[in-house]
Design a protein around this nucleic acid. Structure first.
Length: 478
DNA sequence: AAAAAAG
């Protein structure tokens, strides 16, 4: 058991793990309740923990619903694999002729009508025979709901083997996307979901019966090859989420390709990426035959609703002092603080708690049980401030986050500004017209240069903030 | 450099 000052109580860890594993294979007491909701049948009354879970789930749902209601996109560019076929676009979910239980799930989540990207993407993804899709889209556009809907409409619940496979770049994102699958599929009592993530160990030699699998690359690869829990030849839909991360040369590329190669020829490939840079494009062309392509132009408003500042310091200790000065202002709602390395993150979390601030730490060096518990506590609002690494840069949606601090600016392996990660990080806040605040900590000429290049890239002025000026801090925080 | 990993 870890002895860090921010280590969690054992019962909380267990609760978090339980909530994650309620749909897992090892769980024997799983059965659908009256609403068709799949959960363990232990207690009749709702415990405190369960209510907290409900609230956290609701916050995730609220965010998803808004992404469907608020169209902050102004342009969708569609390239069909057959340019002569008519371009279908739906204005309602009924037009898609979904299975009734699935339509029920869609409405139960509060979706009334398709988002901009869904109008075009859904008819393409649901067409017969299945067609491949490459979509450029960021979170907040209804992307997750779109591919979940595609998986759920293709799945045959009566067949007790994996048919849909979704890959996420991180453990936390896999859990989050899994929750959406559970929610949207909850009116199919016989439908089950398996989490192919670290820490979810199964007994050797068996096959799994869950129809949908969500997971991270390493575990999914093991389940498909060495351990043979999944027969990849029977997968009908393959979703690659955050494909630009998954395909990055230094990233999950090998594993993603090896998994993809095991799939049958006629498997439907759905690939989502924030950018269409060369590496993504080459990969896509190699492995996704005859794709439809959707490019989503997102209004610059995304950045306009987020006020961006920088703080000038001379070294790490000054950055820490500046952060402490900001602390009162950022804890009004929730905040995320990004560091470049795990080491810096754990150092910073320790220093902040020494100063008497309550902070949570989340990085890849922690044990998965702990990670699950921390992200859950953060979602519930039990933790106000999360110190983390790029593990949380993408896709993690917590509604109450209104401040993002780049304790270290995002740079790639060559030390160049990582604009994409910058956009993703600050995109954790200020969505859907909500006000957001991003503060960048600059501690050298070099990092000032990085910041300038980021400004140029987004053509957006990032103003200086004096952290000794409490009035100014007060002003930006409100 | 982070993440992924039944290595």
């Amino acid at each position: 058991m870890a002895t860090d000052s921010w280590a969690l109580a054992v019962d909380e860890q267990e609760a978090a793990v339980k909530s994650m594993s309620s749909l897992q294979i090892k769980e024997e007491k799983v059965k659908p309740d009256t609403n068709g909701v799949i959960k363990t049948s232990t207690t009749a009354e709702k415990t405190d923990e369960e209510e907290k879970e409900d609230r956290a789930a609701q916050s995730l749902l609220n965010k998803l619903i808004r992404s469907n209601l608020v169209d902050n996109t102004n342009q969708v560019e569609v390239l069909q694999r057959d340019p002569n076929s008519p371009l279908y676009s739906v204005k309602s979910f009924e037009e898609l002729r979904l299975k009734p239980q699935l339509l029920q799930g869609v409405y139960a989540m509060g979706f009334n009508r398709p988002s901009k990207i869904q109008e075009n993407a859904l008819p393409m993804m649901l067409a017969e025979p299945p067609q491949n899709l490459i979509a450029q889209s960021q979170s907040g556009t209804g992307k997750t709901a779109a591919f979940v809907l595609a998986m759920l409409s293709r799945v045959e619940p009566a067949d007790r083997y994996p048919q849909c496979l979704c890959l996420s770049p991180t453990y936390e994102l896999a859990l989050q996307t899994g929750k959406v699958i559970e929610q949207m599929g909850k009116f199919h009592p016989e439908l089950k979901l398996a989490y192919a993530v670290r820490g979810n160990k199964l007994e050797r030699g068996q096959k799994i019966s869950e129809q949908i699998v969500i997971g991270t690359p390493g575990t999914v690869l093991d389940w498909c090859s060495k351990l043979r829990f999944i027969d990849p030849k029977r997968i009908k839909v393959f979703v690659l989420d955050e494909a630009d991360v998954m395909i990055a040369t230094q990233g999950h590329q090998d594993q993603s390709i090896r998994i993809q190669r095991m799939l049958p020829r006629n498997c439907q490939m759905l690939l989502f990426s924030a950018t269409f840079e060369d590496s993504v494009w080459k990969f896509a062309q190699k492995v996704v035959p005859d794709p439809n392509i959707i490019k989503l132009k997102r209004e610059e408003e995304t950045l306009d609703t987020i006020k961006q500042y920088y703080v000038l310091c001379n070294n790490r200790d000054e950055k820490f002092q500046a952060l402490c000065n900001l602390y009162g202002a950022i804890t009004i709602a929730q905040a995320m603080i990004f560091c470049h390395t795990r080491k810096t993150a754990s150092w910073l979390a320790a220093e902040l708690s020494k100063e008497g601030h309550q902070v949570a730490l989340l990085s890849g060096e922690m044990m998965v049980e702990q990670r699950a518990a921390v992200i859950e506590r953060f979602r519930e609002g039990k933790e106000k401030v999360l110190v983390t690494t790029n593990v949380c840069a993408r896709g993690i949606d917590v509604e109450q986050v209104s401040v993002v601090i780049n304790f270290d600016l995002p740079v790639d392996k060559d030390g160049n500004p990582d604009n994409e990660t910058y956009l993703h990080r600050i995109g954790r806040t200020g969505r859907f017209g909500k006000r957001g605040l991003a503060v960048n900590m600059v501690d050298s000429k070099h990092s000032m240069n990085i910041l300038n290049r980021i400004q140029e890239h987004f053509n957006k002025k990032i103003e200086r903030l004096d952290t000794d000026d409490l009035d100014e801090i007060e002003k930006i925080a409100n």
